[in-house]
Simulated assay, not measured.
Amino acid sequence: MSKSKVLNLKDKIDGNEMDLSLCNLTEVPVKELAAFPKVTVLDLSCNNISSLPLEFCSLSHLIKVDLSKNQLTVLPDDLGRLSNLQQLDLYNNKLTILPVSFSQLKNLKWLDLKDNPLEINLAKAAGDCLDEKQCKQCAVRVLQHMRILQDEVDKERERRLQKEKELEKKKEAKQREREAKEREARKREKAEEKERKRKEYNAHIAAMAVQEQKNKRKEEKRRRTGQAVADKKAAVESAPKAQRHTLIGLLFKLLLLLLLGLAGVVGVCQLTGLNDEAMCVPVNSAVGDGLSWVREQKVDLKVRELVQEVDIRARELLQKLSSLAPQLLKPLVPTATVTEPVETVEN
Protein backbone atom coordinates (compact mmCIF):
# COMPACT_ATOMS: atom_id res chain seq x y z
CA MET A 1 0.00 0.00 0.00
CA SER A 2 1.13 3.55 -0.63
CA LYS A 3 2.10 6.00 2.12
CA SER A 4 -1.25 7.74 1.78
CA LYS A 5 -3.08 4.47 2.35
CA VAL A 6 -0.91 3.74 5.39
CA LEU A 7 -1.96 7.11 6.74
CA ASN A 8 -5.56 6.15 5.99
CA LEU A 9 -5.07 2.93 8.09
CA LYS A 10 -3.86 5.13 10.88
CA ASP A 11 -7.07 7.05 10.51
CA LYS A 12 -8.90 3.73 11.07
CA ILE A 13 -7.25 3.23 14.43
CA ASP A 14 -8.97 4.21 17.65
CA GLY A 15 -6.85 3.33 20.63
CA ASN A 16 -6.13 -0.40 20.32
CA GLU A 17 -8.91 -0.91 17.76
CA MET A 18 -8.80 -0.76 13.96
CA ASP A 19 -12.04 -0.65 12.00
CA LEU A 20 -11.76 -1.86 8.40
CA SER A 21 -15.40 -2.86 8.01
CA LEU A 22 -17.37 -1.87 4.93
CA CYS A 23 -14.16 -1.10 3.02
CA ASN A 24 -14.99 -3.44 0.19
CA LEU A 25 -11.80 -5.40 0.88
CA THR A 26 -11.08 -8.65 -0.98
CA GLU A 27 -7.76 -9.23 0.81
CA VAL A 28 -6.48 -8.59 4.29
CA PRO A 29 -3.56 -6.08 4.32
CA VAL A 30 -1.42 -8.28 6.60
CA LYS A 31 1.91 -6.47 6.08
CA GLU A 32 0.31 -3.13 6.91
CA LEU A 33 -1.47 -4.57 9.93
CA ALA A 34 1.83 -6.03 11.19
CA ALA A 35 3.12 -2.45 11.41
CA PHE A 36 0.64 -1.76 14.22
CA PRO A 37 1.39 -4.33 16.94
CA LYS A 38 -0.54 -2.31 19.51
CA VAL A 39 -3.77 -2.89 17.62
CA THR A 40 -5.41 -5.88 19.37
CA VAL A 41 -8.96 -5.46 18.09
CA LEU A 42 -9.52 -5.78 14.33
CA ASP A 43 -12.88 -5.37 12.57
CA LEU A 44 -12.93 -6.76 9.01
CA SER A 45 -16.71 -7.34 8.80
CA CYS A 46 -18.90 -6.64 5.79
CA ASN A 47 -16.21 -7.05 3.12
CA ASN A 48 -15.65 -9.47 0.24
CA ILE A 49 -12.78 -11.46 1.75
CA SER A 50 -12.82 -15.08 0.52
CA SER A 51 -9.66 -16.34 2.24
CA LEU A 52 -7.06 -15.33 4.76
CA PRO A 53 -3.38 -15.41 3.77
CA LEU A 54 -1.00 -17.62 5.75
CA GLU A 55 0.78 -14.50 6.99
CA PHE A 56 -2.42 -13.52 8.86
CA CYS A 57 -1.58 -16.23 11.43
CA SER A 58 1.57 -14.30 12.36
CA LEU A 59 -0.56 -11.48 13.88
CA SER A 60 -0.38 -13.15 17.28
CA HIS A 61 -0.99 -9.85 19.09
CA LEU A 62 -4.66 -9.82 18.04
CA ILE A 63 -7.18 -10.47 20.82
CA LYS A 64 -10.49 -9.84 19.04
CA VAL A 65 -11.19 -10.35 15.32
CA ASP A 66 -14.47 -9.76 13.52
CA LEU A 67 -14.73 -11.47 10.12
CA SER A 68 -18.51 -11.67 9.95
CA LYS A 69 -20.41 -11.17 6.69
CA ASN A 70 -17.56 -12.07 4.32
CA GLN A 71 -17.07 -14.82 1.73
CA LEU A 72 -14.72 -17.06 3.70
CA THR A 73 -14.77 -20.71 2.61
CA VAL A 74 -11.72 -21.91 4.49
CA LEU A 75 -9.40 -20.73 7.25
CA PRO A 76 -5.56 -21.10 7.30
CA ASP A 77 -4.19 -24.37 8.67
CA ASP A 78 -1.96 -22.45 11.09
CA LEU A 79 -4.81 -20.48 12.66
CA GLY A 80 -3.80 -21.93 16.02
CA ARG A 81 -0.76 -19.63 16.01
CA LEU A 82 -3.09 -16.76 17.08
CA SER A 83 -2.36 -17.76 20.66
CA ASN A 84 -3.76 -14.54 22.23
CA LEU A 85 -7.07 -14.61 20.37
CA GLN A 86 -10.03 -14.49 22.80
CA GLN A 87 -12.97 -13.56 20.59
CA LEU A 88 -13.65 -14.59 16.97
CA ASP A 89 -16.74 -13.66 14.95
CA LEU A 90 -17.26 -15.78 11.82
CA TYR A 91 -20.99 -15.12 11.43
CA ASN A 92 -22.50 -15.39 7.95
CA ASN A 93 -19.62 -16.88 5.91
CA LYS A 94 -19.32 -20.03 3.77
CA LEU A 95 -17.30 -22.21 6.14
CA THR A 96 -17.94 -25.96 6.29
CA ILE A 97 -15.02 -27.04 8.48
CA LEU A 98 -12.42 -25.52 10.74
CA PRO A 99 -8.70 -26.28 10.65
CA VAL A 100 -7.54 -28.86 13.20
CA SER A 101 -5.14 -26.28 14.66
CA PHE A 102 -8.24 -24.41 15.87
CA SER A 103 -7.97 -26.56 19.01
CA GLN A 104 -4.74 -24.71 19.89
CA LEU A 105 -6.64 -21.43 20.52
CA LYS A 106 -6.48 -22.03 24.28
CA ASN A 107 -7.46 -18.45 25.17
CA LEU A 108 -10.57 -18.40 22.97
CA LYS A 109 -13.59 -17.40 25.11
CA TRP A 110 -16.19 -16.26 22.53
CA LEU A 111 -17.12 -17.70 19.12
CA ASP A 112 -19.92 -17.13 16.62
CA LEU A 113 -20.38 -19.60 13.75
CA LYS A 114 -24.02 -18.88 12.87
CA ASP A 115 -25.17 -18.89 9.23
CA ASN A 116 -22.31 -21.09 7.97
CA PRO A 117 -22.87 -24.37 6.08
CA LEU A 118 -20.99 -26.32 8.76
CA GLU A 119 -20.67 -30.09 8.56
CA ILE A 120 -23.15 -31.80 10.86
CA ASN A 121 -20.88 -32.71 13.76
CA LEU A 122 -19.28 -29.27 13.87
CA ALA A 123 -22.72 -27.65 13.65
CA LYS A 124 -23.94 -29.72 16.61
CA ALA A 125 -20.88 -28.74 18.61
CA ALA A 126 -21.29 -25.04 17.77
CA GLY A 127 -24.99 -24.79 18.62
CA ASP A 128 -26.65 -21.37 18.71
CA CYS A 129 -24.93 -18.08 19.44
CA LEU A 130 -27.84 -15.73 20.14
CA ASP A 131 -26.42 -14.14 23.25
CA GLU A 132 -23.18 -13.75 25.16
CA LYS A 133 -23.59 -16.98 27.10
CA GLN A 134 -24.35 -19.09 24.05
CA CYS A 135 -21.35 -17.65 22.18
CA LYS A 136 -19.08 -18.49 25.12
CA GLN A 137 -20.53 -22.02 25.26
CA CYS A 138 -20.00 -22.25 21.49
CA ALA A 139 -16.32 -21.44 21.99
CA VAL A 140 -15.97 -24.11 24.70
CA ARG A 141 -17.84 -26.83 22.76
CA VAL A 142 -16.11 -26.13 19.48
CA LEU A 143 -12.70 -26.22 21.17
CA GLN A 144 -13.61 -29.58 22.77
CA HIS A 145 -14.82 -30.87 19.42
CA MET A 146 -11.68 -29.66 17.68
CA ARG A 147 -9.51 -31.22 20.39
CA ILE A 148 -11.24 -34.53 19.77
CA LEU A 149 -10.60 -34.08 16.09
CA GLN A 150 -7.03 -33.07 16.91
CA ASP A 151 -6.61 -36.23 18.96
CA GLU A 152 -8.06 -38.28 16.16
CA VAL A 153 -5.81 -36.51 13.69
CA ASP A 154 -2.86 -37.02 16.01
CA LYS A 155 -3.80 -40.67 16.43
CA GLU A 156 -4.28 -41.02 12.72
CA ARG A 157 -0.98 -39.29 12.14
CA GLU A 158 0.56 -41.55 14.77
CA ARG A 159 -0.98 -44.57 13.11
CA ARG A 160 0.24 -43.32 9.77
CA LEU A 161 3.67 -42.68 11.18
CA GLN A 162 3.60 -46.07 12.86
CA LYS A 163 2.49 -47.64 9.65
CA GLU A 164 5.16 -45.75 7.78
CA LYS A 165 7.68 -46.92 10.38
CA GLU A 166 6.44 -50.47 10.06
CA LEU A 167 6.60 -50.19 6.32
CA GLU A 168 10.05 -48.70 6.66
CA LYS A 169 11.03 -51.51 9.02
CA LYS A 170 9.61 -54.06 6.62
CA LYS A 171 11.40 -52.31 3.82
CA GLU A 172 14.60 -52.29 5.85
CA ALA A 173 14.02 -55.94 6.80
CA LYS A 174 13.50 -56.82 3.15
CA GLN A 175 16.54 -54.77 2.29
CA ARG A 176 18.56 -56.56 4.97
CA GLU A 177 17.18 -59.90 3.81
CA ARG A 178 18.00 -59.03 0.23
CA GLU A 179 21.48 -57.90 1.26
CA ALA A 180 21.88 -61.08 3.33
CA LYS A 181 20.83 -63.16 0.34
CA GLU A 182 23.19 -61.21 -1.87
CA ARG A 183 26.00 -61.70 0.66
CA GLU A 184 25.14 -65.39 0.90
CA ALA A 185 25.03 -65.61 -2.90
CA ARG A 186 28.40 -63.84 -3.15
CA LYS A 187 29.77 -66.08 -0.42
CA ARG A 188 28.43 -69.15 -2.22
CA GLU A 189 29.83 -67.90 -5.51
CA LYS A 190 33.21 -67.32 -3.86
CA ALA A 191 33.08 -70.81 -2.32
CA GLU A 192 32.11 -72.32 -5.67
CA GLU A 193 34.83 -70.33 -7.40
CA LYS A 194 37.33 -71.45 -4.76
CA GLU A 195 36.18 -75.07 -5.11
CA ARG A 196 36.39 -74.79 -8.89
CA LYS A 197 39.91 -73.39 -8.68
CA ARG A 198 40.84 -76.10 -6.18
CA LYS A 199 39.53 -78.80 -8.52
CA GLU A 200 41.33 -77.20 -11.45
CA TYR A 201 44.50 -77.05 -9.36
CA ASN A 202 44.13 -80.68 -8.29
CA ALA A 203 43.39 -81.69 -11.88
CA HIS A 204 46.44 -79.74 -13.01
CA ILE A 205 48.60 -81.42 -10.34
CA ALA A 206 47.17 -84.83 -11.31
CA ALA A 207 47.80 -84.12 -14.98
CA MET A 208 51.34 -83.03 -14.17
CA ALA A 209 51.82 -86.20 -12.11
CA VAL A 210 50.47 -88.34 -14.97
CA GLN A 211 52.65 -86.48 -17.44
CA GLU A 212 55.65 -86.85 -15.14
CA GLN A 213 54.88 -90.55 -14.77
CA LYS A 214 54.62 -90.86 -18.55
CA ASN A 215 57.89 -88.99 -18.92
CA LYS A 216 59.49 -91.30 -16.36
CA ARG A 217 58.17 -94.32 -18.23
CA LYS A 218 59.38 -92.90 -21.50
CA GLU A 219 62.74 -92.11 -19.94
CA GLU A 220 62.92 -95.56 -18.40
CA LYS A 221 61.90 -97.14 -21.68
CA ARG A 222 64.40 -94.97 -23.53
CA ARG A 223 67.05 -95.81 -20.95
CA ARG A 224 66.30 -99.52 -21.19
CA THR A 225 66.24 -99.28 -24.97
CA GLY A 226 69.51 -97.34 -24.93
CA GLN A 227 70.99 -99.80 -22.47
CA ALA A 228 69.86 -102.70 -24.62
CA VAL A 229 71.28 -101.02 -27.71
CA ALA A 230 74.49 -100.22 -25.84
CA ASP A 231 74.70 -103.77 -24.51
CA LYS A 232 74.03 -105.14 -27.96
CA LYS A 233 76.58 -102.77 -29.43
CA ALA A 234 79.06 -103.61 -26.70
CA ALA A 235 78.37 -107.29 -27.25
CA VAL A 236 78.83 -106.82 -30.99
CA GLU A 237 81.99 -104.77 -30.41
CA SER A 238 83.34 -107.02 -27.66
CA ALA A 239 82.73 -110.25 -29.60
CA PRO A 240 85.67 -109.72 -31.97
CA LYS A 241 87.82 -108.53 -29.05
CA ALA A 242 86.83 -111.56 -27.03
CA GLN A 243 87.56 -113.72 -30.01
CA ARG A 244 90.87 -111.94 -30.49
CA HIS A 245 91.68 -112.24 -26.79
CA THR A 246 90.69 -115.90 -26.89
CA LEU A 247 92.83 -116.50 -29.97
CA ILE A 248 95.80 -114.61 -28.49
CA GLY A 249 95.39 -116.50 -25.24
CA LEU A 250 95.24 -119.75 -27.12
CA LEU A 251 98.35 -118.91 -29.13
CA PHE A 252 100.12 -117.79 -25.97
CA LYS A 253 99.21 -121.05 -24.29
CA LEU A 254 100.40 -123.01 -27.29
CA LEU A 255 103.67 -121.05 -27.33
CA LEU A 256 104.03 -121.53 -23.61
CA LEU A 257 103.36 -125.25 -23.96
CA LEU A 258 105.86 -125.32 -26.81
CA LEU A 259 108.48 -123.53 -24.73
CA LEU A 260 107.74 -125.77 -21.79
CA GLY A 261 108.01 -128.79 -24.00
CA LEU A 262 111.26 -127.49 -25.46
CA ALA A 263 112.61 -126.73 -22.00
CA GLY A 264 111.56 -130.18 -20.85
CA VAL A 265 113.31 -131.80 -23.77
CA VAL A 266 116.45 -129.71 -23.09
CA GLY A 267 116.32 -130.60 -19.42
CA VAL A 268 115.85 -134.28 -20.11
CA CYS A 269 118.68 -134.33 -22.62
CA GLN A 270 121.06 -132.33 -20.37
CA LEU A 271 120.36 -133.79 -16.96
CA THR A 272 119.33 -137.35 -17.45
CA GLY A 273 121.05 -140.43 -18.71
CA LEU A 274 119.46 -139.87 -22.06
CA ASN A 275 121.97 -137.21 -23.12
CA ASP A 276 123.87 -139.80 -25.17
CA GLU A 277 120.79 -140.95 -26.98
CA ALA A 278 120.47 -140.17 -30.67
CA MET A 279 117.48 -137.91 -30.12
CA CYS A 280 119.31 -135.75 -27.53
CA VAL A 281 122.60 -135.34 -29.42
CA PRO A 282 121.23 -132.61 -31.74
CA VAL A 283 119.54 -130.88 -28.82
CA ASN A 284 122.66 -130.80 -26.67
CA SER A 285 124.73 -129.68 -29.65
CA ALA A 286 122.32 -126.83 -30.38
CA VAL A 287 122.30 -125.69 -26.74
CA GLY A 288 126.11 -125.76 -26.59
CA ASP A 289 126.43 -123.86 -29.88
CA GLY A 290 123.97 -121.23 -28.67
CA LEU A 291 125.82 -120.66 -25.43
CA SER A 292 129.17 -120.51 -27.26
CA TRP A 293 127.77 -118.03 -29.74
CA VAL A 294 126.56 -115.81 -26.95
CA ARG A 295 130.00 -115.92 -25.28
CA GLU A 296 131.78 -115.11 -28.47
CA GLN A 297 129.66 -112.10 -29.35
CA LYS A 298 131.18 -108.69 -28.69
CA VAL A 299 128.49 -107.17 -26.55
CA ASP A 300 128.53 -104.74 -23.81
CA LEU A 301 129.97 -105.71 -20.44
CA LYS A 302 126.60 -105.45 -18.78
CA VAL A 303 125.09 -107.73 -21.39
CA ARG A 304 127.85 -110.27 -20.85
CA GLU A 305 127.29 -110.12 -17.13
CA LEU A 306 123.60 -110.61 -17.76
CA VAL A 307 124.26 -113.61 -20.00
CA GLN A 308 126.65 -115.11 -17.44
CA GLU A 309 124.04 -114.59 -14.76
CA VAL A 310 121.43 -116.24 -16.95
CA ASP A 311 123.89 -119.13 -17.58
CA ILE A 312 124.49 -119.58 -13.87
CA ARG A 313 120.79 -119.47 -13.13
CA ALA A 314 120.11 -121.91 -15.94
CA ARG A 315 122.67 -124.38 -14.61
CA GLU A 316 121.19 -124.09 -11.11
CA LEU A 317 117.80 -124.72 -12.59
CA LEU A 318 119.02 -127.70 -14.52
CA GLN A 319 120.55 -129.15 -11.35
CA LYS A 320 117.24 -128.73 -9.55
CA LEU A 321 115.44 -130.30 -12.44
CA SER A 322 117.86 -133.25 -12.36
CA SER A 323 117.01 -133.85 -8.73
CA LEU A 324 113.32 -133.70 -9.58
CA ALA A 325 113.56 -135.83 -12.72
CA PRO A 326 111.67 -138.87 -11.32
CA GLN A 327 108.66 -136.71 -10.43
CA LEU A 328 108.78 -134.92 -13.77
CA LEU A 329 108.31 -138.18 -15.53
CA LYS A 330 105.04 -138.84 -13.74
CA PRO A 331 101.59 -137.63 -15.05
CA LEU A 332 102.19 -134.29 -13.35
CA VAL A 333 105.17 -133.58 -15.53
CA PRO A 334 103.41 -130.75 -17.47
CA THR A 335 102.69 -128.80 -14.29
CA ALA A 336 106.30 -128.96 -13.20
CA THR A 337 107.63 -128.14 -16.61
CA VAL A 338 105.48 -124.96 -16.72
CA THR A 339 107.41 -123.38 -13.87
CA GLU A 340 110.84 -123.98 -15.29
CA PRO A 341 110.35 -122.60 -18.78
CA VAL A 342 108.67 -119.49 -17.39
CA GLU A 343 111.81 -118.63 -15.46
CA THR A 344 113.88 -119.47 -18.48
CA VAL A 345 111.80 -117.19 -20.68
CA GLU A 346 111.94 -114.40 -18.18
CA ASN A 347 115.71 -114.81 -17.78
Rank of each mutant, 00 (worst) to 15 (best):
M1Q: 07
K3F: 03
K3G: 07
K5M: 10
L9H: 07
I13P: 01
D19K: 09
D19M: 04
S21Q: 07
L22H: 14
N24M: 11
L25H: 08
K31V: 03
E32H: 05
K38Q: 12
T40E: 03
V41R: 00
D43H: 03
L52G: 02
F56C: 04
S58P: 04
L59R: 00
S60W: 06
S60H: 07
L62S: 00
I63C: 03
D66G: 01
L67R: 01
L67K: 02
V74M: 10
L75N: 03
P76M: 04
P76E: 03
L85K: 00
L88K: 00
L88H: 00
L90Q: 00
Y91G: 02
N92V: 08
N93R: 01
T96D: 05
T96G: 05
L98Q: 00
S103C: 13
Q104L: 10
K109C: 05
W110K: 02
W110Q: 00
D112T: 06
K114P: 04
P117E: 09
L118H: 01
I120C: 07
L122T: 00
K133V: 14
K136Y: 00
Q137V: 04
C138S: 15
C138N: 07
A139F: 02
V142H: 00
L143A: 04
H145T: 03
H145D: 14
M146C: 02
D151Q: 13
V153A: 05
V153Q: 06
R157A: 14
L161W: 13
K163N: 09
K163P: 04
K163Q: 12
K165Q: 15
E168T: 04
K171R: 15
E177F: 04
R178L: 05
E179K: 07
A185H: 12
R186N: 10
K190Q: 13
K190T: 11
A191W: 12
E192Y: 13
E193N: 14
E193Y: 05
E193T: 15
K194E: 15
E200V: 15
E200Q: 15
A203S: 13
H204D: 14
A206G: 06
A206Q: 14
M208T: 11
A209V: 15
Q211Y: 14
K216S: 09
K216V: 13
R223A: 11
T225Y: 05
G226W: 06
D231T: 11
A235N: 05
E237Q: 14
P240S: 03
Q243K: 13
H245G: 08
H245R: 11
L247T: 12
I248H: 10
K253F: 12
L262E: 03
V265I: 02
Q270K: 03
Q270E: 06
G273D: 09
N275Y: 09
E277I: 01
C280A: 12
V281E: 08
P282A: 02
N284L: 10
S285W: 11
L291M: 08
S292T: 08
S292E: 09
W293C: 07
W293V: 06
R295M: 04
V299T: 06
K302C: 09
Q308R: 09
R313M: 09
L317H: 09
L317E: 13
L321V: 13
L324G: 03
L324A: 15
A325I: 08
K330H: 11
P331Q: 04
L332P: 08
T337Y: 12
T339P: 07
P341A: 13
V342D: 08
E343G: 12
N347H: 14
